[in-house]
Design a protein around this nucleic acid. Structure first.
Lengths: 194, 194
DNA sequence: GTTAGCATGTAAGGAGTTACATGATTTT
DNA sequence: AAAATCATGTAACTCCTTACATGCTAAC
């Protein structure tokens, strides 16, 4: 089953499917990808790569040939076992899949899965957010009178943001079900209306 | 200096300023407050309370009197030292203050600080987000052609969300500088236009 | 030639989750 | 009477960050 820490593994496998890469580059790509929040450190990436090597999910490819001089950079490649594991993790639909970080990673690699999985992940994520929304709004209704200005404003903003995200997900779900070509007719507004 | 883990401490001190509370209740309030993301567990709250007791930031008040029978629930109260520490942490303006979680907590307790601090925190947070935005958009412009559909859509949505947050902050900053009454004339739209 | 960025790693430690353990009280 | 929820705690463990350590290479 997917533990929390498999996030890096999934991300690495996903990225390496776009082609061989070395650690430093992986880190940059990952930080750009989930850049809104934590930044991945070497201290967690390199050990993770070692672990994946041992598990035979990836292999070292011959050090990349920079014409002038080959400095020691280790390029990694996915093994067949790695591809299998990637597919397995991607199709694992469950609570861990709709956590913030896990969802983002999965979404970013949606192209590598089929529509059935995509829909289940999107819908799972949406209902999770809707649950939270309902719970908070219920609680908010109960204690409405007593809230502090700023605390209240924060709540309002939070609720609005989540509602926005729900709409985004709904658009994506509709696109998945309707179009063949989801991300081309994007979420909120037609192209060029910006 | 404020370490990462002082988040709970700050939150507890802030909440206890609204009145004495026991652990279970603190946890509920906190989870509602930062509910969009991680949920605080007992395993981190209770040890934190113990630590704060030892540091003399809070004290146990006599077990709350439920008329029928007083079950063993431990109600905490802030000490003068705790109030001092709270003020100190709140006015500590620095990188840690504009991290997601830390910012939220600080914002929620803005009423307990003066405008000067509020402005510095809001502006600090805003420039941090703008930096990230600029960096990502630069990177995005460089690699635009090669991005995958879904990965691209995720980026777009991320950028939009952050831009929204920047606007929210700008409105709050304007309100702080202009009005006396910031959160009453709220961010995006006038009351009742919802 | 020296600074800035590329590139890889390790060791120690922090912060918090999970799972366990226990018992009272309220609701059904 | 059982189930749910209130209420408090502890121990083991996981994941990750920080800080350290090293050396190459490109730009200025």
């Amino acid at each position: 089953m997917a533990r929390r820490g498999d996030t890096i593994e999934l991300a690495v496998l996903g990225l390496l499917h776009e082609g061989p890469m070395h650690g430093y580059e992986l880190r940059k790509r990952l930080n750009l990808m989930l850049g809104w929040g934590r930044v991945l450190s070497y201290g967690s990436l390199y050990p993770a790569l070692k672990k994946m090597l041992r598990a035979n999910l990836i292999t070292e490819v011959s050090t990349a040939t920079t014409p002038t001089s080959r400095r020691p950079r280790i390029v990694y490649e996915v093994t067949p076992a790695g591809t299998e594991q990637f597919q397995r993790l991607m199709s694992e639909v469950g609570p861990t899949a709709w956590e913030d970080d896990n969802f983002d990673i999965r979404f970013a690699f949606f192209s590598s899965t089929d529509m059935e999985i995509r829909l289940r992940v999107l819908e799972g994520r949406r209902s999770r957010l809707q649950e939270r929304l309902a719970r908070v709004q219920a609680e908010l209704a109960r204690t409405q009178a007593e809230v502090d200005r700023y605390a209240g404003e924060l709540q309002r903003h939070g609720v609005e943001s989540v509602e926005r995200e729900v709409r985004w997900l709904s658009d994506l779900i509709r696109a998945e079900r309707g179009d063949e070509d989801p991300a081309t007719a994007p979420a909120t507004k037609p192209v060029g209306s910006d």
